[in-house]
Amino acid sequence: MAAKRITREYAEISESPPSGINVSLDNDNVHKWNVVMAGPEGSPYAGGTFHLSLTLPPEYPFKAPVLSFKTRIYHPNVTNDEKGSMCIGILKSESWKPSSKILAVLLAVQDLLREPVPDDALEAQIADKFKNDRPGFERDAKDAVKRWAK
């Protein structure tokens, strides 16, 4: 059932992709998606192009997908390293529901780029800067976009 549902979801997203999001399969494996996300307009990430990797477990949709940034990003909720692990509410095991869709996950990532959640940060320093020095944070984020996401 997992493959069937994933295929359907993939088809839906491919047919009418949300603005700024492009998906493709990694080696035709429906359990591994490559996501390309444009930095949302109005955020410090605007103009950047971010590559993400979405892994759907065999138990999907009963288990949440795993999402990570392949492009390095300066963001409180994404680890600032090569792994690019991220923390997002909808994917947490206690809030994941089988009825949640991948589209909703991707839109949530876009929201997270627009508005970081410093209280649930993975990078405490970036979260502090976001809270206490917003202009400084935006400057650093833009610098990081120029360096890594162009």
Binding site: S95, A108, V117
Partner: peptide, 14 residues
């Protein structure tokens, strides 16, 4: 634990 994290993730619960 849930009460403290609920504040953070409230907006994302759909």
């Amino acid at each position: 634990l849930q009460a403290s994290s609920a504040r953070t993730w409230q907006e994302q619960a759909d």
